[in-house]
């Protein structure tokens, strides 16, 4: 027994070690591609600045360069591309610029900024941490509403043929409407009945996150096979007992698969909900960045949102592992 366990852990760590080089290679290749793409993307601005600094550029007028292909400009002016990766307002910022902006708007802003947590006692509303927390709050509230609603609907669908026939098509239709079109309407309608702040954003989050939960839970609640249902029948179990003792425990693995999708969808919902509101949050930050041409700021917010999503999905994965182990599922 202990031998078998040893072998399993050894082979597991072995594959993990084997997995590092290929993953690293792909990441490095992506970064290399990014650094390369920065050159043609920013070539117009780079050459204009070089020209102002007195370097000879062909063609020599900004107007003529606008009509020339970016790649042709790169090839014709290889001597003047030095500033490609350090422009103040690049079309495409280089990775290190994004990382530096991230560092500045989180650590530097909080520790040294006038409104930072060190000097003012509260998170700076110019820093990313504050905006990430705003988004995270709406995401979590929306996720809880969406998950609760999804589970309730799934239980109803499994137990009632009428609900199966009536709710499921609407649930599917609801997901075909683009959320960017729907979000402002939800916010306006809720505002007119006096609901504003966190809740409208959470509602948009819930709107996106309930669907994967419904689909996953319906499948999970129906996963017990005919024999397991027959067994409950021989015990003369009520449908409540079947639900709590058989259907719900059997659906747990399906639920977690759905929750991973739902939490990522919740985050997207919260960000989309922040676009029309403009009262903080990563979505507001991104839109502000695009108003003022602050591409680096947009990318930094984007990166933080991606990191947040990764963290949330990881947290669900960890909860899944713990729960399944506690339920005695085969590791």
């Amino acid at each position: 027994m202990s031998d078998a366990l040893d072998m399993r852990s050894r082979s597991k760590s072995g594959t993990a070690a084997l997995r590092v080089p290929p993953v690293l290679t792909v990441v490095l290749a992506l970064f290399a591609l990014w650094y390369l793409a920065v050159v043609p993307m920013n070539v117009q601005e780079t050459l204009t600045r070089a020209e102002r600094a007195g370097v000879a550029i062909t063609p020599d007028s900004a107007l003529a360069r606008r009509d020339t292909g970016n790649l042709a400009l790169v090839v014709g002016n290889t001597h003047a591309l030095g500033e490609s990766w350090s422009l103040e307002r690049p079309r495409l910022p280089a990775p290190h610029q994004v990382v530096s902006e991230l560092y500045k708007s989180t650590w530097v802003e909080e520790t040294t900024g006038r409104r930072g947590i060190v000097n003012s006692g509260s998170l700076s509303n110019r820093g990313l941490v504050y905006h990430a927390m705003v988004t995270l709050n709406a995401t979590m509230v929306g996720f809880l509403i969406g998950t609760g609603l999804g589970i309730l609907l799934a239980v109803g669908i499994v137990h009632s043929r009428v609900m199966d026939m009536s709710v499921m098509p609407w649930a599917i239709v609801s997901q075909t409407i683009p959320i960017v079109a729907l979000a402002p309407m939800i916010i306006v309608v809720l505002y007119s009945v006096g609901v504003q702040g966190l809740l409208p954003k959470a509602v948009i989050s819930a709107y996106l996150s309930f669907f994967p939960v419904v689909v996953g839970m319906v499948k999970g609640l129906r996963s017990p096979d005919a024999m397991q249902m027959d067994l409950m029948r021989t015990y003369y179990a009520s449908s409540t007992e079947v639900l709590f003792k058989l259907r719900l425990p059997a659906s747990v693995p399906y639920l977690f698969a759905s929750l991973k999708i739902a939490i990522a969808a919740s985050l997207v919902g919260a960000i989309v909900g922040e676009l029309p509101v403009q009262k903080g949050g990563l979505g507001a930050r991104m839109l502000a960045g695009s108003y003022y041409g602050q591409t680096v700021q947009i990318w930094a917010a984007l990166f933080l949102a991606a990191a947040l999503a990764a963290l949330l999905v990881w947290a669900i994965g960890a909860a899944e592992k713990r729960t399944l182990r506690r339920m005695g599922m085969r590791p």
């Binding site: 024999m227 397991q228 027959d230 067994l231 015990y235 003792k245 425990p249 005695g328 599922m329 085969r330």
Partner: peptide, 25 residues
């Protein structure tokens, strides 16, 4: 009591808890 071709024990319950299932109901 009905015994099926497959044991059909609930994987999330221990052997003892599986036997308790009809008793709980």
């Amino acid at each position: 009591g009905y015994v099926f071709q497959a044991a059909g024990l609930y994987p999330w319950r221990t052997i003892g808890r599986n036997i308790a299932l009809p008793l709980e109901i």
